[in-house]
Computed example of a mutant assay.
Amino acid sequence: MSASLAEVFLTFLRFGVLSFGGGMANLPEMARVLLANGWLSRRGFADGFALGQFVPGPNMLAVLFYGLSAAGVGGALAAMLGMFLPGTLGAIALVWAWRWMGQAQWSRALRRALVPIAMGLSFSALLVLAQVSLSSLWGLGGAGLAAVLLYRGANVLAVLIGAALLGWLIGVL
């Protein structure tokens, strides 16, 4: 399904406005909307997220892939502008107000209150990623093994290479 550029821009503008704590905070809503609109499949959402994490830059560069899938190159640009414009304008405003906010008591209390909310949003993003990408016992087992290895202090690059090799072997066999 091809979407209009305005539709893509407004959709990602909404995501950008709601992205307190980063784009990952509204990943569940992003998946729901993009899949419901038919702009992506579950696999396409997972692949776009993986590509966005792989390339250097902001962790939500996946929106370029999502916009490209929805409306071509113009959609990629509309998605990027919609997603990153609110955060950019907000950062500029915060820089101007930083000194005043750092001294305000309500600001410190608000930051402490937002910690559990951010943790809950991060956990919901983890659940969505698991739903769209772990479709077999092999995948679930591999993710569990990787988590245990990383928790025990294994080298991240070694775990990534091992997971890639294991995935390749499973695909070949």
Rank of each mutant, 00 (worst) to 15 (best):
G153R: 04
L27Q: 02
A36P: 06
W39C: 02
L129T: 02
N59I: 15
L40Y: 02
W39K: 02
A78G: 05
A46T: 11
A158P: 00
G171T: 12
T11R: 08
G87K: 06
L121Q: 00
I117D: 10
P28F: 13
P58A: 15
F15V: 07
L169T: 09
L137H: 08
M1I: 13
V148G: 09
L173H: 09
L18D: 07
A97C: 09
Y151M: 06
V17K: 11
A104S: 09
R111V: 14
R42I: 12
A31M: 02
M30E: 14
G44F: 00
W96E: 12
A91N: 07
G82H: 02
A71L: 01
P58H: 06
G87A: 08
L94S: 11
E7G: 15
M101K: 11
I117K: 01
V128T: 15
Y66P: 01
A158T: 04
R32M: 06
G171Y: 11
F20R: 00
L137D: 11
G141R: 09
G142D: 05
V55G: 05
G141E: 11
L129G: 03
R42T: 14
S122Y: 10
Q131A: 15
G142N: 08
A163P: 03
P56L: 10
I117T: 12
N155H: 11
S135D: 11
L114Y: 13
R32D: 13
G144F: 07
M101G: 07
G142A: 15
F12R: 04
W39G: 01
W98V: 12
L165V: 09
W96S: 14
T88S: 14
A154V: 11
V132N: 03
A158W: 10
L18Q: 10
L166V: 12
